[in-house]
Every structure is written in structure tokens, then in C-alpha cells.
């Protein structure tokens, strides 16, 4: 059985990627499971979807713990613990990263024993969320790497899954998908179906006896304020608002008032300061600033923000 996990951000089309790949496998006569993982995650937040494909009935269900292929649509997710991109990745698993950096860099950085394949990141993009073809490119990459999905099966899957979006969008996606499929032909078939957890000699988890705890402790209640500030929603951001202090006139804190998340504080001198650990990058501030003093910078081009370094 092939077990493939797609990691991206809400809005990048990971569900679509899993459905295109699932349909492509199906077109090749495989038994298939594909599913997105829904949580509280929103646009920009890390999400994943997965596909299983086999020549016989699939009995496994749910999240893939031991993937054969992990596709990372957004390289900034790799360093994010909440994204759990590398969960279950071992020497057998192929990791495909959509990145500007070459495979050895990632291999070294992540101390990966298994193969790393790079899908080069286009340079001209500004907002990673803006490019809707990432999902289809990821599906095409997966199809090529498993090596058992012909272009015709993939193309049909892509047409079927994107049909509702209109012909123009289908055609716009076919080209990039084909280019990715061709580009990765040297790696065709580098993904091999992995083994299952054996019933003999398995590693026994440390089971505990779940003991009674008083309702004061064991009710779903939080006896504190503002604990949500420990959640780094700044990791959702793909565009970063940067205030040009020279142009900021210290108005009636328009940016701070309109920021839905309350992630812009105003200091005593009336100057706004963005809390990058929590700014989700909606850019309402940039759109509303009366003096156009807030610029949007693609996150991967921006230096690490002070707040985030402190918070990580």
C-alpha cells in the first residue's frame, strides 16, 4: 500500500491535491482512500491531507503514521512543530519539499536518512497563498514519484476534480502539472510501499492506568486569562506587514483598531508595534493605513521577526 501525506496551509489546496491523486490512483485501478484533516485551522494555518492506494481492499483508516511519501507544499511549515510535517518520517520515506534550496541542504538541516526531492519554488510569486496551482503541482509530483500513475490517469483526475471551477482554471492547472510531472521523471518510482506495524515484536507503548482526578482538575475549564497568547498564530502568515516608521504619522491608531486579532499595540508615543508572533498576515492594517505606511512583504523574504525569535 502507498501512504502519502500532503502538508500545506489552509488555502493552498491540499485537499484538492489529495483528491486529484486519489482519483488518479483510482483511474489506474487502485483501491483508494483520500481525506483532508479538518480541525480549527483556517486559511494560512498548517493543514494536511492524505491518500492511501493499494491493489487490494484498504483496511487502515485515519491519519497516516508511517508515510511512504511526504509532500511539503510550503517549506516554512517544516520548522513549525504544530505542522508535524516529519511525523513518522524514516529512512524509507521520501520527502518532497517545494523549496528554493537544494536537497542536501534539507537533508542536512533535518538530519534525514531517507531521500529528499526538491520541487523548485518559482521566484516571482509574492503570496504563497495566491498561487492556486500548488495543490495540482503537488498531486502531479506525487503521481510521478510513486511511478504507477500515468499522465493520462492524472490528467483525467485533474479535469474531474477541478471541473467545478471552470474550463479556464482546468487549463491553467494542466500546464504546470505537466511540467512538474515531466520535471520529476528522473525520480519516477522512488517511492516504495511501506510495511505495516508487525503484530510480533512491536514496541509496546507505555500504557497508563487513567486514574480518577477531581473535577476541579478534570473538567474542561481554564482558570486563567489570555492563555491563547501562547498560540503562535504568526505562523499562519505568508505576507508580513511592515511599518515604515518614517511614513507613520501616529494617527488615531487605525491599524491597531482594525486589526481583527488585536495584534497591533500602540506605545506611549502613539506609535504602533506589530506583534509578529500573533499577526496572521491578513493585511487589513496595510489596506487601512491612511498614510500607506505599512508594506506587505512575502514572509520568506523577510528577516526573522524579533517577536517570533523570542517566542519560538
Amino acid at each position: 500500500m502507498y501512504r502519502i501525506r500532503f502538508h500545506g496551509r489552509g488555502g493552498q489546496g491540499m485537499k484538492t491535491a489529495s483528491r486529484i491523486l486519489g482519483t488518479a490512483f483510482f483511474n489506474e485501478g487502485f483501491e483508494v482512500q483520500d481525506a483532508p484533516r479538518y480541525g480549527a485551522e483556517r486559511r494560512g494555518a498548517p493543514i494536511f491531507a492524505y491518500v492511501r492506494a493499494a491493489r487490494r481492499a484498504i483496511y487502515e483508516r485515519g491519519v497516516i503514521r508511517h508515510p511512504d511519501l511526504v509532500i511539503v507544499a510550503d517549506e516554512t511549515l517544516v520548522a513549525m512543530p504544530a505542522a508535524a510535517v516529519l511525523q513518522g518520517v524514516d529512512a524509507h520515506c521520501v520527502v518532497l519539499i517545494h523549496s528554493r534550496e537544494p536537497a542536501p541542504v534539507w537533508q542536512h538541516r533535518l538530519n534525514l536518512a531517507g531521500p529528499v526531492v526538491i520541487l523548485p519554488l518559482a521566484e516571482e510569486r509574492e503570496d504563497r497563498l495566491a498561487l492556486r496551482q500548488i495543490g495540482t503541482a503537488c498531486a502531479a509530483a506525487a503521481a510521478r514519484l510513486v511511478g504507477v500513475v500515468a499522465w493520462t490517469a492524472l490528467e483525467q483526475a485533474l479535469r474531474d476534480e477541478l471541473a467545478a471551477l471552470g474550463d479556464a482554471l482546468v487549463e491553467a492547472n494542466l500546464g504546470p502539472a505537466r511540467r512538474v510531472y515531466d520535471f520529476l521523471s528522473p525520480q519516477q518510482g522512488c517511492v516504495a510501499p511501506g510495511p505495516v506495524v508487525a503484530a510480533e515484536g512491536y514496541v509496546r507503548p507505555d500504557w497508563v492506568e487513567l486514574a480518577f482526578e477531581d473535577a476541579r482538575v478534570s473538567a474542561p475549564a481554564i482558570h486563567a486569562a489570555l492563555t491563547s497568547e501562547q498560540v503562535q498564530t504568526g505562523q499562519w502568515r505568508t505576507l508580513r506587514p511592515v511599518i515604515d516608521c518614517a511614513r507613520c504619522k501616529g494617527c488615531w491608531w487605525v491599524c491597531s483598531t482594525f486589526c481583527p486579532d488585536g495584534a497591533i499595540q500602540v506605545d506611549e508615543s502613539g506609535r504602533p508595534r506589530i506583534d509578529y508572533a500573533h499577526c496572521k498576515g491578513c493585511m487589513v492594517c496595510a489596506a487601512q493605513c491612511p498614510h500607506h505606511a505599512i508594506e506587505a512583504i512575502p514572509e520568506q523574504d523577510a528577516p526573522p521577526a524579533e517577536d517570533e525569535r523570542g517566542a519560538k
Binding site: A40, E41, R42, R43, G44, A45, A225, L226, T227, S228, E229, Q230, V231, Q232, T233, W236, R237, C251, W252, W253, V254, S256, T257, P260, D261, G262, A263, Q265, V266, G270, D275, A277, H278, K280, G281, C282, M283, V284
Partner: peptide
């Protein structure tokens, strides 16, 4: 507008959509 609060009470870090 200058009378509007400039520091905010509701915490950041919620799971609501950007924007």
C-alpha cells in the same frame, strides 16, 4: 477617533480566520 482604546483587552492567538 483619538478617544478610541489604543490598547486591547482581548487576547491574540485565537483560531479565527485571518481578517
Amino acid at each position: 477617533m483619538k478617544d478610541l482604546p489604543s490598547c486591547h483587552l482581548l487576547g491574540t492567538g485565537t483560531a479565527l480566520c485571518a481578517g
